[in-house]
């Protein structure tokens, strides 16, 4: 082992220089050319940061579109999923409670119209998106709360919907949608 020890130590030191210093600095250099200089893309309103484009945030009020439940409380310094198994009784009670609360806040909506992502927690606790269907199901509530035409809201959702050919899921970024929502005047 003795004859291997010194090469091992020296090779480790060289690797530290290469992989802990040179490689990250090289990537850091390229990051300066990337969008937002590699510091994470932010959303500004009136010159102030109101969010990160990629990260969801909590919306609890009835006059905003709401995103997914978050096991991390949308704390972007402590991401986490619920880690609840599919059959856990406590977990199913939690989901039931979310469904009931949704029905109370959205009168006229039936259970079968609620897409599951609105009552299940995301993997990161920071999911920025919901499906277009999950946004549309909230339209009557927001139309009433903000006194805006439902048709206007629907076209707002459509213009904020995007999808990738890789999965075809029609999704809406909740933060961007709500920023656009704040721009619409009530009737």
């Amino acid at each position: 082992m003795k004859e291997e020890l010194f090469p091992a130590i020296r090779l480790t030191l060289v690797c530290i220089v290469l992989f802990c210093v040179a490689y990250p600095l090289f990537v850091l250099g390229i990051a300066k050319l990337a969008p937002a200089k590699g510091e994470g893309e932010t959303i500004q309103r009136n010159g102030k940061t109101v969010g990160y484009a990629r990260e969801g945030q909590s919306f609890t009020s009835d006059n905003y579109f709401q995103g997914r439940p978050s096991a991390a409380g949308y704390n972007a310094a402590s991401s986490a999923g619920s880690n609840k198994g599919p059959s856990d009784p406590d977990y199913l009670k939690t989901v039931s409670a979310r469904i009931n609360s949704f029905l109370v806040h959205n009168p006229g909506i039936e259970k079968k119209d609620i897409p599951s992502e609105l009552v299940t927690a995301s993997g990161s606790g920071l999911d920025p998106d919901i499906s277009a269907a999950a946004a549309l199901v909230q339209v009557p509530r927001i139309a009433k709360a903000r006194n805006i035409d439902a048709a206007k809201l629907e076209s707002l959702i459509r213009s904020n919907t995007n999808s990738s050919v890789l999965n075809g899921i029609e999704k809406v970024n909740v933060l961007l949608l709500n920023l656009a929502l704040d721009q619409i005047k009530s009737k």
């Binding site: 599951s116 992502e117 995301s122 999911d127 920025p128 899921i169």
Partner: peptide, 10 residues
């Protein structure tokens, strides 16, 4: 979208 607990919409 299938089973969405612990998954991301995107």
């Amino acid at each position: 979208l299938g089973s969405m607990e612990g998954k991301e919409v995107r």
